[in-house]
């Protein structure tokens, strides 16, 4: 026998659960419908051409895809490296109150609003890049196309650096948790063989934690790809593809942010919706990949 209150409660639970699913479907349906005009009109050309000309209603999103790829890969490499190393530092080199204090400080980075990152990037980081770091890099590494050209300050490098900082808390916190879950007897097995701390970490602990760390990096990458405001403020907003990290560029998220309220024609709006749809699909894909790696951990642990 089921009480009436329980039936009401069940109904309310199912309503909430289905609402979440409906919301998810709504993203596909709304973004799909709204971008229809652009998809039909430009087809594949939308993602492989680089002319973005609202006046003549010709839209190729390649510069934005490129900008998103460059800035988030930069963040993945740089922020990912710093994040994983910080996690190693927290797990193997400090203990007790200092570990929790430092871990807490890095998690606070996640609490800072992205507009504040943007503000800092625009008024502090970009001028420093323009006058100090970029000329210096140009002088010593200028033989690489990455570091050639006029230092603008705002551009791919500024956006990549800001994104590196913004994904740090995600990467550090998740990698730290994964490393803390490496069993103690695995560590001791390595030490008992005469391993140094470094050998224990690089030969045994990191390989053991590999899938978890990759999934942390994937979630960080997802965050970098979708970040809007901070990037919009420091990337320079120029829809062009440049090999140089010093050059201004544009990302998918920032073109939506900058142009959506100004888009006047139907096809212009539709093109921006299509950029949004691509962005949404990308983050879903990164999440799925991250999940597959998490499943990988469950498998390794099941065998131990």
């Amino acid at each position: 026998m089921k009480r009436r209150s329980d039936r009401v409660l069940d109904g309310w639970l199912w309503f909430a659960a289905l609402l979440a699913l409906a919301l998810f479907m709504a993203f596909f349906i709304m973004l799909g419908t709204e971008s229809r005009a652009s998809v039909l009109r430009f087809g594949w050309r939308f993602v492989v051409t680089s002319v973005w000309d609202p006046v003549h209603s010709v839209f190729g999103a390649l510069p934005f895809l490129y900008g998103t790829a460059v800035t988030s890969l930069f963040a993945l490499v740089f922020g990912g490296l710093v994040g994983v190393c910080t996690a190693v530092f927290l797990v193997y080199f400090v203990r007790g109150w200092f570990r929790s204090w430092l871990g807490g400080a890095i998690e606070l980075l996640a609490a800072i609003p992205s507009v504040v990152y943007g503000l800092w990037g625009l008024f502090v980081l970009a001028p420093w890049l323009q006058h100090t770091l970029e000329p210096w890099l140009g002088r010593w590494l200028g033989f690489l196309p990455l570091f050639q050209g006029v230092p603008y300050g705002v551009g791919y490098l500024a956006a990549g650096l800001i994104l590196s900082v913004m994904i740090l808390p995600t990467v550090t916190a998740l990698s730290r948790d994964v490393l803390l879950a490496v069993p103690r007897d695995i560590h001791e097995g390595a030490l008992a063989l005469g391993a140094t701390t470094q050998e224990m970490i690089t030969h045994v602990a990191l390989p053991y934690a590999r899938s978890g760390i990759i999934s942390a990096l994937m979630l960080g990458l997802g965050r970098a790809v979708g970040e809007t405001i901070a990037v919009t403020m420091v990337i320079g907003n120029r829809p062009e593809i440049s090999a140089s990290l010093f050059a201004p560029g544009y990302t998918m998220a920032s073109v939506i942010a900058n142009e959506f309220t100004e888009a006047t024609t139907h096809v212009y709006l539709s093109a921006l919706y299509e950029v949004g749809l691509l962005l949404f699909l990308l983050t879903v894909a990164f999440y799925v990949v991250a999940r597959l790696f998490i499943r990988g951990i469950a498998k390794t642990e099941g065998n131990v």
Binding site: A20, L21, L23, F24, A26, F27, M30, L31, T33, E34, L219, G222, R223, V225, G226, E227, T228, A253, I256, A257, F260, L272, Y273, G276, L279, F280, T283, V284, F286, Y287, R291
Partner: peptide, 19 residues
């Protein structure tokens, strides 16, 4: 769905609500 939504770019949420 919740995990994907928590990683969805906030600008895309703006697009959805606009539509």
């Amino acid at each position: 769905v919740c995990d994907v939504l928590s990683g969805t770019p906030t600008i895309v949420i703006g697009l959805l609500v606009y539509a």
